[in-house]
Amino acid sequence: MRVFNDLDEIRALVGEKLGTSEWLTVEQSHIDLFADATGDHQWIHVDADRAAEGPFGTTIAHGFLTLSLLPVLAASTYHIEKKRMGINYGLNKVRFTAPVPVGSRVRASAELVAAEDTKDGGVQLATAFVVELEGSERPAVVAEWLVRYYV
């Protein structure tokens, strides 16, 4: 994990890779809990028997579940020491480029795309994440995540 002392230190790195997270295994329990939380119980995610006969041969994670792993993946990629809080501001350019079969491992690499001052005294970072799927040539997700930090 890469550690930055403060926002000035990280904002100087626009255009550079910030790091790569640890691997995370996507378990059926993650998929089931996400299905319960969102109401998306499509068989391809939660019915192992039916999914075994489907196009992927097993259940797959929801695309939005894989996207929602960004906070935990980012937390093992980089950390900013001197900040009071970070606020999720949104996403740009999100694509789900490969399915994530149950039991797969994912990790994310992060590149700082932009750093801008906000009107309320914060700093907004735009970070491009590529969620890699172990053993796949294609990533599972690519997204640009906007987070506002305050000191």
Rank of each mutant, 00 (worst) to 15 (best):
R2S: 11
V3T: 13
I10A: 05
R11N: 06
A12E: 13
E16D: 12
E16K: 15
S21H: 02
S21D: 08
L24E: 04
L24D: 00
V26R: 10
V26P: 02
S29R: 15
F34M: 01
A35M: 07
A35K: 09
D36R: 14
A37D: 06
A37I: 03
T38K: 12
T38F: 12
T38N: 14
G39N: 07
D40S: 08
H41T: 04
H41D: 12
Q42T: 09
V46Q: 04
D47R: 02
D49R: 12
R50V: 04
A51L: 03
A51W: 02
A52G: 12
G54M: 08
P55A: 14
F56N: 08
G63R: 11
L67V: 00
S68H: 10
L69T: 01
L69P: 04
L69A: 11
P71N: 07
P71R: 05
V72D: 15
L73F: 10
T77F: 11
I80D: 13
I80G: 13
E81A: 13
K82N: 15
K83L: 15
M85G: 07
M85T: 04
G86V: 05
G86E: 13
I87S: 13
Y89T: 04
Y89W: 04
L91D: 05
K93I: 06
R95Y: 08
R95C: 03
F96D: 09
T97R: 10
T97H: 10
V102F: 08
S104D: 12
R105Y: 06
R107Y: 02
R107L: 01
A108H: 05
E111I: 05
V113M: 14
A114F: 06
A115L: 03
E116T: 12
E116G: 07
D117F: 09
D117I: 05
T118R: 12
K119N: 09
D120L: 11
G121I: 02
G121C: 10
V123L: 13
L125I: 01
A126W: 01
A126E: 09
A126D: 05
F129W: 14
V130R: 15
E132M: 03
S136F: 06
R138D: 11
P139K: 11
A143L: 02
E144Y: 10
V147Q: 15
Y149E: 14
Y149I: 00
